[in-house]
Amino acid sequence: MPPRTETIPLLPASPGTSRVLTVHRFGQPGARPKAYLQASLHADETPGLLVLHHLHGLLAAAEARGEIRGEIVLVPYANPIGLAQFANGMHLGRYEAGGGGNFNRNWPDLYAPIVDGLEDRLGSDEAANVEAIRAAQRAHLEAQEPGSELESLRLALASLAVDADLVWDLHCDDESLMHLFLIPAHWPQAADFAADLGCRAVLLAEDSGGNSFDETFSTPWTRLAKHYPQHPIPAACLAATVELRGFADVDDATAAGDAQALFHSLQRFGVVAGDPPPPPTLRCQATALDATDSVRAPATGVLAYTVQLGDEVEAGDVIAWIVDPTAVPEHARLPVTTRASGLVLSRRSQRYARPGMPIAKVVGEDALPHRQGDYLLED
Rank of each mutant, 00 (worst) to 15 (best):
E71S: 09
G210L: 10
S341P: 07
L282V: 11
D116L: 12
E145C: 01
R94G: 10
A273G: 09
A87K: 15
T241P: 13
F269I: 00
S124K: 12
L289I: 02
R223T: 01
E314N: 10
W168V: 07
L92H: 13
A136N: 08
A240D: 09
L150G: 02
S152N: 12
N129F: 14
A360Q: 00
F86Y: 08
S40L: 13
G70K: 11
S212W: 13
L368W: 14
Y36Q: 02
V271M: 13
A136W: 08
L59V: 04
S208L: 07
A195T: 02
A299S: 01
A60R: 10
R138P: 10
P47G: 07
P33C: 10
A195K: 05
H24G: 10
I322H: 06
L10F: 01
S152I: 10
F193M: 03
V115S: 14
D120G: 04
A299K: 04
T292D: 04
D173V: 09
L50C: 06
H56D: 07
T254I: 11
R200S: 07
R296V: 09
A78T: 00
T337F: 11
L377Y: 13
P369C: 11
A132S: 06
L368T: 02
D366R: 15
N106R: 15
P234F: 10
G274I: 07
V130N: 05
